[in-house]
């Protein structure tokens, strides 16, 4: 579990949001995937997609069902609403459209594609910084995390004083937000803080 790569990811996300990119990619690792899913859960990212060296097709550019068939479907559902539920794995409304992302077989060629968010011409994710460093890991108990979440300093970690600041902690239950850890009373190694 290298924190060097995470440091690179942190600065890359800061740079990408400063450049107002809509989509960016980071190297894939289990920790990165879990952390990015945590960021998405907290609303910092719009999408997290596993893909190859080329970006996955954005949702709006994927093949959409034509409006006529959608209308037919709506009319059918209105008459026979039980058709909304598939029977024996067969959908009575016709085949579901699934866009398949081409993930390379070679793991070295895989990238994790992230959708960045902006609001009022300001990036939602502006700052992302490591708390533990590659040379100095910091483990926090749930009491420490409680104090930090209440904006107090604890175990040489500054409190979450910026508006809307989040801290991610890797625990034996996965990568969680600091406030989640406090709620579940689990401690872990602090990874990074985001605001």
């Amino acid at each position: 579990m290298s924190l060097v790569n995470l440091a690179h990811v942190c600065s890359h996300l800061q740079n990408a949001s400063k450049a107002r990119l809509g989509l960016t990619s980071i190297p894939v690792s289990k920790m990165h995937v879990n952390l990015m899913l945590g960021l998405q859960r907290e609303g910092f990212l719009s999408s997290v997609t596993l893909g190859g060296p080329t970006p996955p097709k954005p949702f709006l550019l994927q093949t959409q069902p034509d409006p006529e068939s959608l209308e037919n479907m709506a009319r059918k559902l209105e008459k026979e609403p039980w058709n909304a539920y598939p029977v024996d794995g067969q959908s009575p409304l016709g085949k579901e459209q699934i866009y398949e992302v081409n993930v390379p077989e070679n793991p070295a060629k895989r990238r994790l594609w992230l959708g960045l968010k902006y609001w009022n011409n300001e990036p939602v994710l502006k700052q992302m910084k490591l708390v533990s460093k590659p040379t100095r890991r910091i483990w926090l108990t749930s009491e420490d995390l409680g104090r930090i979440a209440r904006t107090r300093e604890s175990s040489y970690v500054k409190g979450l004083t910026h508006p809307g600041e989040c801290m991610f902690v890797t625990t034996d239950r996965g990568i969680l937000e600091a406030r989640d850890c406090v709620e579940r009373r689990i401690g872990g190694m602090a990874l990074c803080r985001v605001w």
């Binding site: 609303g43 968010k117 609001w119 939602v124 508006p163 809307g164």
Partner: peptide, 16 residues
């Protein structure tokens, strides 16, 4: 240029 909690909540789609 302060970031207000309302704006943060709208940006993230979360309830603050």
């Amino acid at each position: 240029n302060q970031r207000l909690p309302d704006e943060i909540a709208r940006g993230r789609g979360k309830k603050l």
